[in-house]
């Protein structure tokens, strides 16, 4: 069989030789860093206008990650396109004719793309954190404070998991357009809206993004953070479970359906 190393190398060639990879990942970085910076600066200048509760639960780390609301969407696009372009171009048939073993093919692809997403996510997270803190001025925190390093690394993990989840969904749906049409509104609107509605909140807290964002939070009850009855690593675990489910679903679809 085509060895996993060979397939990994091939997937790396595939991913680095299309321009959509570069553009989506640059978008992830820019959207997260720029918007995070702007919101940090605005928070700094309007800090006095916040209510007392908001002031006491102000989470400078999470504030510097505000841009991830949009940055994660670019990450969704990255994940969807990595897998979806195989289907939209028909390349999947060429790929599978060359690597008949579905598991080797899928997990090599997802491994390469996931690793790339993790690296970009971590870089983005650290840059967004330091720029955000610089702009927060007196209200900033430092990387040495308890929980802060975990949150910054967590932002990279979160980005990686978002990409992996998108890839799993796209393998199941076998279409870029369909996947984007479902994932974008979900992450941008549905999840956030439900998380703000009293009853639906209890369910929404177990959505992948809501659960995963717990990892980015340093102050547990931050006003702009989520609720839920789990801690940062609990949230991470819930998100991982979603990702694993999506990937297993994708694998089963790939294995059992005609390409």
């Amino acid at each position: 069989m085509a060895s996993a190393a060979a397939v990994l190398q091939s997937e790396w060639t595939k991913i680095r030789t299309v321009s959509s990879t570069t553009w989506t990942l640059i978008s992830v970085f820019l959207a997260t860093v720029v918007i995070g910076g702007v919101i940090s600066a605005v928070s700094n200048s309007t800090f006095g206008d916040l209510s007392d509760v908001s002031q006491t639960t102000f989470d400078p780390t999470l504030t510097s990650f505000s841009g991830m609301v949009l940055g994660q969407l670019a990450m969704v696009v990255f994940g969807v396109l990595v897998v979806g372009s195989e289907y939209s171009s028909g390349m999947i048939r060429t790929s599978l004719a060359a690597v008949p073993r579905r598991a080797t093919f899928l997990f090599s692809k997802i491994g390469v793309a996931g690793l790339l997403a993790l690296v970009v996510g971590l870089i983005t997270g650290f840059v967004a954190f330091f720029i955000g803190q610089a702009l927060l001025g007196d209200h900033s925190t430092t990387i040495g404070e308890p929980g802060v390093l975990r949150a910054v690394i967590g932002s990279g993990l979160y980005m990686c998991l978002i990409a992996l989840f998108s890839m799993g969904i796209t393998v199941m749906l076998r279409s870029s357009m369909l996947s984007l049409g479902i994932l974008m509104p979900f992450f941008f609107l549905v999840s956030n809206i439900l998380a703000a509605v009293p009853k639906a909140k209890d369910v929404a807290h177990y959505f992948p993004d809501q659960a995963g964002q717990k990892l980015l939070q340093v102050v547990p009850d931050a006003a702009n953070g989520g609720g839920g009855s789990y801690g940062p690593w609990g949230g991470f675990g819930i998100m991982c479970a979603w990702v694993v489910a999506a990937l297993i679903g994708g694998y089963l679809v790939l294995r059992n359906r005609d390409a």
Partner: peptide
């Protein structure tokens, strides 16, 4: 063992011919 031309359009249009073939070559060493 087996080489197949099934659908000539089944390539990612954004990738160059050389890179397309390179990715396939790397699959099998």
């Amino acid at each position: 063992k087996v080489g197949a031309l099934l659908d000539a359009q089944a390539v990612h249009g954004g990738r160059s011919a050389r890179n397309h073939l390179l990715s396939l070559a790397q699959l099998s060493g």
